[in-house]
Write a protein that binds this DNA or RNA. Sequence first.
DNA 1: GACGTATATGTAGGTGCGTCGATGGCGTTG
DNA 2: CAACGCCATCGACGCACCTACATATACGTC
Lengths: 123, 123
Amino acid sequence: MGTALAEMTMPQISPLAGEPIEKHDAERLAGVLKALADPARLRLLSLIQSAPDGEACVCDLTAPLGLSQPTVSHHLRILTESGLLEREKRGVWAYYSLVPSAIGAIADLLTPPRKRGAKRAAR
Amino acid sequence: MGTALAEMTMPQISPLAGEPIEKHDAERLAGVLKALADPARLRLLSLIQSAPDGEACVCDLTAPLGLSQPTVSHHLRILTESGLLEREKRGVWAYYSLVPSAIGAIADLLTPPRKRGAKRAAR
DNA sequence: GACGTATATGTAGGTGCGTCGATGGCGTTG
DNA sequence: CAACGCCATCGACGCACCTACATATACGTC
């Protein structure tokens, strides 16, 4: 359950580039995408990114989302375990910030280096 | 339930660029990402993309995935309704192909034009 | 027109996920 | 040291989703 992202970016799998991806790689990529595929979590990433210092604590995030504190904490946990967020505890507060190029790595996985064949010679 | 992607790429929302995204935009983007966040559907996209002419019919996709025909048809429906696939029926067969720049559009939404503030002055 | 194939739809079961209230740990403040 | 605030975890509820079996529709063939 660690950073599933790091395990993927290393071998640099390109699901939509060359040959079909294997079942195991598909499951890992789906796991990271599943962490992103939630309105509350997308808004959390956006809120944290646009915060004054690029970081925010839980208490600042519950109100804008209209969700309870345990729910917000739950989503932050999922984002952190996926490698998208970093958590730093300072005193009573837990500050979350975006992992610099984590989302960019996902975007790179979705955009293959070069479009191959796929020119739809059909009909 | 048409192409949720087209509705997003038009106003060019950048969830991770400027200010926090609204609830409605987050739900739409999450909807498209949710269509991607499934191992079977990722493999379907990969299989179709790497097919000889960039297209494939259902009968060619059931075996590699190890899923039943109705299940594969179900996933293809979801991908098509999300704007990621195109469907063209020729005779008895239904040929599916990737919408040229659909996934690229998602990648662009995830990679903001320019990294703003967010320089983590923490600690 | 009847049969077989290819695909889509309907229905149902099993599982996972989002949300909340309640609880407990931990640091800060009075 | 006692009280308060911040945060994570737990248990539970409800909903959505994945999958399969059965059925329905469309097309080509004999």
